[in-house]
Nucleic acid binder design. Structure first.
Length: 733
DNA sequence: CGGGGTAACGACGATAAGAA
DNA sequence: TTCTTATCGTCGTTACCCCG
């Protein structure tokens, strides 16, 4: 438990590249810190804690928190990940449970001044490509975990490559993806604003007045909300005042200028722009949508949000919602005509993972910005789109929010009102896309097992397409606890039955058992029939044929059943991964416990011995042979104990392989070390090897050479139909 | 035809009411 | 007081219908 709740927090900022890749640029002077999640109850706690560990308490700074979850399946499918912001307690809880379950989850922190400046930005001015590279390399080498390899490694090369080409493809058709609006970097925003405006104006001159009016209107609205009634400037001037990159927004040549300084101008001049970018984005999107609404005569695409805080997101939803309605071909042509692609505006990158299949991609890739089609302005944010936005919350499905919670969440986050039904669908979709559907999961199973074997030499796995009889020799014993519980539930009317059953079941000698059994029969025939149906050899100690230990060693099947509860319903790969992690944890705790234990016997066994020792006190012991004794308990009867054969006529000794009270009394009389009477199967040295090997995590699937024969193995999930109704949660049947 | 909404159904779970 | 039982509201899921 000690170190299990720590999370690595890193300070810096996110940068989204045009290929849809995200990079977290760490502050070079501020190293990552560790913090403990378990003390933290809500988002405010976390923020305070973060400020504290980064020594930022005294400064008036905001903290923006985010995290990136590791989605192996998505990585394998070549899908890029995006970060998820922690904006409310709900997301905080998601992150918390995620981080507890997965140690690779780090917390990314971005500090901002109240005016929006990113704190610490002066440390990493990207004056030139060279320095950009340097800082990245430095970050790469100094960071832990996935620094050098993993997707950050891949990202680095991609960045370099893009940086080289950045100047050439900066025409109007440049690809730029703006995904989660809240963390677009400034350059992107500037360019984005320019391009939108250029597109609007350049495409149709006579619309410009309308555009300006609407633009002005929206800018003013945003301005009002932002600055609380500060004197307004005219719409375009507002932008001019905020960033000189935009003062060329009506000018095509300057657009390319603006984009070419993409990596250079991030240092000083955009500093004061940061805080407003979300709102500006929202505003921009809004004005754009409104303008389109003007075009088509339909402007009720989505109700206007009451607050501007999440406008950016909302626009994403809106824009994406329309991705599926446009005529793909025409959209492509039109888009080419005006030189703009949807991903520049509406954050297509964030949606991309949703549509792994090509057809959808084609449909989604371009949108018709000029089309006068009412379809374009549908009111709905489809469940697919919302699911794409919420995907990150379901990286671990078992900690994801429930459909009921999504209603409120989607409303506050994206200002979209959805029905319960839709929320449920969103959840399903999100889980599927985050974890992979059954088919893909099963298809990956051979590869995964191969990688698992690589990581843990000696792993034995065998893929069976049909389930043979497993462990034919295992005796199927019923747990007495459960039988008693059942009897209690069924035949309660007749008092005392459960305890009778309990006593009967615990008897060691067949005769004792028969006596008790008869008593049950007399008391309640139906109960007796019920027990008879189970079969005495299956639940009574006396008739049970295998070895049965009295110790409540947690029944492995039951334990698994319980421990796997949260992971159930996840695709098979997620399930196996969950089991692997869990067993690793279990093994480790047991190793620790074994290391702490003094002597041969586990603590539980020692406890039992002590109990028996106490029970044996005061018994009359008569030595009848060198190792044979006659023991007379106070309550009557007499038993023959043989310390040599380790038997007792009560049968408890040999059945449990633990000395019974009589044997303890005999051993005490003989001054015999009673620990020697414990059967081997109770000894630590017997159990130790079973947990000796550490279960190592698998390597990133994408980085392992998988033999061809394994790669081509095709495994389909079993033909199952989900039974109607809500699936039971409590047991795996 | 695809996607969205409503209604219905059954498991789950909290709680009140009742019995030991 | 504790344990059962009854009840009702909630949640998950599907069938069916409607709409663009």
């Amino acid at each position: 438990m000690e170190a299990d709740d720590t999370v690595v927090a890193q300070a810096g900022r996110w940068i989204l590249y045009s290929s849809g890749e995200w990079e977290f640029k760490m502050d070079t002077f501020r190293q990552g810190r560790c913090l403990r999640m378990s003390d933290l109850k809500c988002l405010v706690d976390l923020k305070l804690k973060v400020k504290e560990i980064f020594k930022m308490e005294k400064r008036t700074v905001f903290v923006e928190l985010s995290y990136m979850f590791e989605d192996k399946l998505a990585v394998l499918r070549g899908i890029e990940e995006g970060p998820t912001q922690i904006k409310d307690d709900w997301q905080f809880r998601s992150f918390k449970s995620l981080s507890l379950g997965d140690k690779s989850v780090n917390l990314f922190v971005c500090f901002r001044e109240t005016d929006g400046t990113i704190v610490g930005r002066e440390e990493e001015k990207l004056g030139s490509l060279q320095s950009c590279d340097d800082s990245r390399l430095e970050r790469g080498s100094s960071s832990r975990g996935f620094g050098e390899v993993g997707y950050f490694g891949g990202l680095m090369s991609a960045v370099v490559e893009r940086a080289k080409t950045v100047d050439e493809d900066k025409g109007r058709g440049s690809k730029r993806t703006v995904s989660d609006i809240w963390e677009i970097n400034d350059e992107d925003l500037v360019r984005h604003v320019e391009e939108v405006e250029a597109a609007l104006l350049g495409e149709d001159g006579k619309q410009s007045e309308i555009n300006d009016d609407i633009l002005l209107e929206h800018v003013q609205a945003v301005e009002l909300q932002l600055f609380g009634g500060r004197e307004l400037e005219a719409g375009k001037n507002l932008f001019d005042g905020q960033d000189k990159g935009t003062d060329s927004c009506k000018d095509d040549e300057d657009i390319s200028d603006g984009s070419s300084v993409y990596s250079q101008n991030s240092g000083e001049e955009d500093g004061d722009f940061d805080g407003d970018k979300i709102e500006d984005m929202g505003n921009k999107g809004d004005s754009k949508t409104a303008e389109k609404g003007e075009d088509s005569g339909d402007d009720d695409f989505i109700e206007h949000p009451p607050s501007n805080r999440n406008k950016g997101k909302e626009v994403v939803v809106w824009g994406a919602g329309n991705l599926f309605k446009g005529n793909a071909k025409r959209a492509l042509e039109d888009a080419a005509k005006i030189g703009i692609t949807i991903d520049e505006v509406y954050g297509y990158a964030d949606l991309e993972p949703m549509f792994a299949d090509e057809e959808m991609n084609k449909k989604a890739a371009h949108v018709d910005l000029t089309k006068e089609d009412d379809n374009m302005f549908s009111k709905h944010a489809t469940s697919k789109v919302v699911a794409a936005l919420l995907r990150a919350n379901y990286a671990n499905a078992y900690c994801g929010p429930r459909a009921r919670d999504l209603l409120e969440c989607i409303l506050t986050e994206h200002n979209v009102r959805v029905s319960y039904w839709k929320a449920w669908k969103v959840k399903e979709l999100a889980v599927v896309t985050a974890q992979g559907i059954d088919e893909s999961s099963y298809a990956l199973l051979p590869v995964y097992l191969h990688v698992l074997k690589l990581a843990n030499p000696g792993t034995v796995y065998k893929l069976e397409t049909s389930i043979p009889e497993v462990y034919p020799k295992a005796h199927h014993g019923f747990c007495l606890v459960h039988i008693r519980r059942n009897v209690k539930a069924k035949y309660l009317k007749k008092g005392g039955l459960p305890s009778l059953v309990w006593r009967a079941g615990s008897m060691y000698r067949k005769k004792d058992f028969d006596d008790e059994y008869d008593r049950i029969k007399q008391r309640n025939v139906r109960c007796w029939e019920f027990l008879e149906g189970i079969g005495v050899e299956n639940w009574s100690r006396a008739y049970f044929e295998g070895e049965r230990y009295n110790l409540m060693s947690s029944n492995i099947a039951e334990s698994l059943n319980k421990a796997l509860l949260p992971a159930r319903g996840s695709p098979v790969l997620a399930l196996i991964e969950f089991i692997r992690k869990m067993l690793g944890r279990w093994f480790e705790t047991r190793r620790k416990r074994i290391a702490r234990t003094v002597g041969d016997n586990p603590i539980a066994v020692e406890r039992e011995l002590l109990k028996r020792f106490k029970g044996g006190l005061g018994m009359a012991v008569l030595a009848v042979g060198r190792w044979d004794f006659e023991v007379k308990p106070k309550e009557g009867g007499h038993f023959h104990v043989s310390l040599e054969k380790r038997t007792c006529s009560s049968l408890e000794f040999q059945k449990l392989n633990l000395p019974c009270t009589h044997a303890m009394a005999a051993a005490h009389k003989r001054r015999f070390e009673y620990k020697l009477l414990v059967g081997d199967m109770h000894k630590i040295k017997m159990w130790q090897p079973t947990v000796e090997g550490a279960i190592l995590p698998v390597q990133d699937l994408a980085e392992v050479e998988v033999p061809e024969d394994i790669r081509v193995m095709c495994l389909m999930p079993p033909q199952t139909k989900r039974p109607p109704e809500r699936p039971p949660k409590l047991r795996i049947h």
